[in-house]
Amino acid sequence: MLFYSYFKTLVGKEVTVELKNDLAITGTLHSVDQYLNIKLNNIRVVNEQKYPHMLSVRACFVRGSVVRFILLPPGSVDVELLHDATRREARGG
């Protein structure tokens, strides 16, 4: 549940979600669930010409299983917080 909790703290921030099919979408994180499914608002697609079907899409739901990476906003990453949470999770807590 570490990453679910962490992504909840990023709601309202801008992230770029890169999918396994190479489609990359930048948008405001609207919500996340325990499967790390993600909803983005005010999206724009990186390399838009290559994906014309996305031109009329403004908000989207991305299935967690198709995500490769999520590029995080540097100002929202507290590394100490992540280390503590990771150690706690590794202990099974």
């Binding site: 990453f3 396994k20 790390l36 967690g64 299983s65 995500v67 490769r68 990476f69 999520i70 590029l71 995080l72 906003p73 540097p74 990453v77």
Partner: peptide, 11 residues
């Protein structure tokens, strides 16, 4: 280069 990156484990 990416400042901070979340990587999904299944990859």
């Amino acid at each position: 280069m990416v400042p901070y990156l979340f990587v999904r484990g299944d990859g």
